[in-house]
Design a protein around this nucleic acid. Structure first.
Lengths: 188, 188
DNA sequence: TGTAGCATGTAAGCCGTTACATGATTGA
DNA sequence: TCAATCATGTAACGGCTTACATGCTACA
């Protein structure tokens, strides 16, 4: 069965969003992805959403339905089917989760501190802490929207994990910035 | 000057590794990347290392020299030059660091816990904690190799940051696994 | 003598982004 | 009536990986 090449993880991620039961448009899926997936996977471009939906459809894992209540324009709503749920469970059960990959431009720039000196590095870390705060607030808002709802117990775990991560990150980065303070001046 | 399209970040990352002064082969650069960059950026494939080196060379940011002490085969050693250092500093000074991107398959799978049930999720998290431990040990070894050396003060900061991250991650994940224990059985 | 490691590349192809293009609907 | 949002796609292309290909060197 299913002798095709394995789906890319992002495809499973979108299928996963659909596994919560709603019937969604590509546009709505994008909004979901932007508010949840983006914190620990990616925020796929609209164009990718649509091409993944086409792929999942072709494989018979989701079903498209043209929304009748949408007036003139053609609005397609997608719903996961039994095959899709089976495929997801199969994937979860049989494949080994890969180790997380971090693309951390701030760490990369810290690595190159010798090129710019501690002053400049401290300023950059400061900016990062600020953006962490904003990101954390966004995630908190997401959690507030689902917390307590038993249907979203696992998403809530993930969100709380993210908050803890941001908190830890803030503490560590602040610590590094402080250590940078008392350094031999006039590097570079 | 430099009216070409901006370099991809990975290119700057490799240039950054060369900014520590050594004259390295592509092969050696790959080893460096695997032991340091991979923790917070990527471990580029060999083939990409070589193509990035070609690009950096073409732009005049690094200099290639055929190693005479290498016997029969042609071994190219690359060294950063003044233009390369200037380009790196320019990049660090003028571009805004992007927010980190996390590709976290474990979080993604936790999100889908409703499909497999708490038992299975706990097992997966356990496996993740194990791999975290291994990863942490690797990074600790890297730190041990550079700690105290003033030339690698900033890389040491980055490494310690990574260790803190792994520690925090372990604590959070263990906490989630524990919360999963006392759950209504027979989900799914 | 053979194998693991050192060393360098080319080719094909997927994932994902940006740019481009179009049009309906809602609400100020 | 105008702009923001909803909604759906196509085309081009860059980054990066995997697979393929080659050969030297050190060492057991």
């Amino acid at each position: 069965m299913s002798q095709e090449r394995p789906l890319p993880t992002t495809s499973y991620a979108l299928l996963g969003l659909l596994s919560f039961g709603q019937e969604l448009t590509g546009y709505e899926l994008k909004q979901w992805a932007d508010s949840t997936l983006r914190f620990y996977w990616v925020a796929p471009a609209m164009s990718q959403i649509y091409s993944e939906l086409t792929r999942l459809s072709r494989r018979g894992l989701i079903e498209a339905r043209v929304d009748a209540d949408a007036g003139e324009r053609v609005v397609r709503r997608y719903r996961i089917n039994e095959a899709g749920l089976a495929e997801l469970r199969e994937w979860l059960a049989t494949s080994e989760p890969e180790f997380p990959i971090l693309k951390h431009p701030v760490a990369l720039r810290l690595l190159l501190g010798h090129l710019v000196g501690p002053e400049s590095v401290r300023a950059m870390l400061k900016g990062y802490v600020d953006s962490l705060e904003r990101q954390r607030a966004d995630l908190q808002a997401v959690l507030d929207g689902i917390d307590g709802d038993p249907a979203f117990r696992y998403p809530a775990f993930v969100a709380r994990w993210g908050l803890d991560y941001y908190d830890s990150e803030r503490a560590v980065v602040t610590g590094i910035a402080d250590q940078l303070e008392d350094e031999d001046p006039a590097e570079r």
